[in-house]
C-alpha cells in the first residue's frame, strides 16, 4: 500500500511536469505562426550572417553613454511620445517601434530618469507581446527595479540581455525580418537622438565624429534590408536609407593602426590603444543627415 502511494505520488509529479512542459511548448508554437513577410525558402541571407550584421549595430547604451559623458543635456522632447503606441497596427510598425521605444528606455535610464521609464517599459512589453516575443523580458522585476535610480545597471542588464536573446530567437525561428526591423528602429532612433541633441562648442566635433562613424553601420543595415526590399513595407525604408547613404558618401573615414601597448594593474590588463581614426564630416553634411533621419523617423513613429 505504502509502495503504491509512493508510486502514485511520483507519477503525479511526472504528469504535472509533463503538463507544464506541454503548456510551454504550446506558447512556443504560437510564436512560430508569426511570419509576416518572407518565408524560409525565400531568404538568401544565411542565419549566421544575419546574426553577425545585426551584432554590428551599436547598442543604444553606447550612444547614450557617449552623449552623457560629453555633457549633453537630457531632453524628453526627443523621445517618441508614449501615447503613439496606439497608432501601431502592423507588425512592421510594431517591430520598428519596439526598437525605438527600447532605445528611449535606455536613454532615460542612462540619464537617471527611471521614474519616467514605466510607461515606456509597458510599451516595450506590449509591442513584444504583439510580436509574440514577450517571454524575453522579466517585466515584474524591471518594474520593481525602475522605482529607484540605484538599480540602473540591473535594468540595463535585463533590458540588454532581453533584446539580445530576443534577436537570437527571432533569427533562429526564421523571423529575421522582425529582428532586422527592431535593429533598424534602434539604430534610427539612436542616430536621431545624436543628431538632435543640443551640442556645445566643447563637444560638437566629438559628437559629429561619432555620427560620421555610423556610415559603416548604415552599409550593414542596407545589406540586411536589401533581402526584403521588394516587400510592400520594406521598400520605402530601404529607399529612404539609401538616400541617407548618398548623404553619407561625403563622410571620409581613415584609420591609422599602431600596435597597442599593455599595462597590468591589480589583475586588470589595460590596453593602450595607439591607433587612431579620423572622420571628416562637414556641418552641412551633419545637417543633411539630421534632416533625413528626422524624416525617416517621423514616418516610423507616426
Amino acid at each position: 500500500m505504502k509502495k503504491k502511494t509512493k508510486l502514485s505520488l511520483i507519477l503525479a509529479i511526472v504528469a504535472g511536469l509533463m503538463i507544464s512542459g506541454c503548456q510551454y511548448n504550446k506558447r512556443q508554437e504560437a510564436t512560430d505562426l508569426l511570419y509576416d513577410t518572407k518565408k524560409e525558402g525565400e531568404l538568401f541571407l544565411h542565419m549566421d550572417m544575419v546574426k553577425e550584421m545585426i551584432s554590428s549595430v551599436p547598442n543604444p547604451v553606447e550612444i547614450s553613454s557617449l552623449l552623457q559623458k560629453a555633457g549633453v543635456v537630457y531632453s524628453q522632447d526627443l523621445l517618441n511620445p508614449a501615447g503613439n503606441i496606439d497608432n501601431y497596427n502592423t507588425n512592421f510598425q510594431r517591430a520598428l517601434n519596439l526598437g525605438v521605444y527600447g532605445t528611449n528606455l535606455v536613454y532615460m535610464n542612462i540619464y537617471d530618469r527611471t521614474l519616467s521609464t514605466l510607461r515606456y517599459l509597458s510599451n516595450v512589453r506590449d509591442l513584444a507581446s504583439d510580436l509574440r516575443i514577450e517571454q524575453f523580458f522579466d517585466y515584474k522585476t524591471l518594474n520593481r527595479l525602475s522605482e529607484s535610480s540605484r538599480n540602473i545597471d540591473s535594468v540595463l542588464f535585463i533590458t540588454n540581455t532581453g533584446f539580445d536573446n530576443m534577436t537570437r530567437y527571432l533569427i533562429e525561428q526564421d523571423r529575421s525580418n522582425i529582428a532586422i526591423l527592431i535593429s533598424a528602429g534602434t539604430w534610427i532612433e539612436s542616430l536621431y537622438i545624436a543628431t538632435h541633441v543640443e551640442t556645445i562648442p566643447g563637444n560638437k566635433d566629438y559628437i559629429n565624429m561619432r555620427i560620421g562613424e555610423q556610415k559603416k553601420v548604415l552599409d550593414n543595415l542596407l545589406l540586411l534590408l536589401h533581402a526584403y526590399r521588394e516587400e510592400p513595407n520594406f521598400n520605402w525604408l530601404y529607399d529612404a536609407l539609401m538616400d541617407l547613404k548618398m548623404i553619407y558618401e561625403d563622410v571620409k573615414i581613415s584609420y591609422v593602426y599602431a600596435e597597442p601597448t599593455m599595462q597590468e594593474l591589480n589583475g586588470v590588463l589595460i590596453v593602450i590603444d595607439n591607433s587612431q581614426s579620423e572622420v571628416i564630416i562637414s556641418d552641412n553634411t551633419i545637417e543633411k543627415i539630421a534632416n533625413k533621419i528626422a524624416e525617416i523617423r517621423t514616418r516610423i513613429i507616426g
Binding site: 586588470v268 589595460i270 587612431q276
Partner: peptide, 14 residues
C-alpha cells in the same frame, strides 16, 4: 589568465 581587460578605444570600428 588575465581576469579583466580594460580597453579605452581610440579607433572606432567593428
Amino acid at each position: 589568465h588575465i581576469p579583466v581587460i580594460m580597453f579605452p578605444v581610440a579607433m572606432s570600428g567593428i
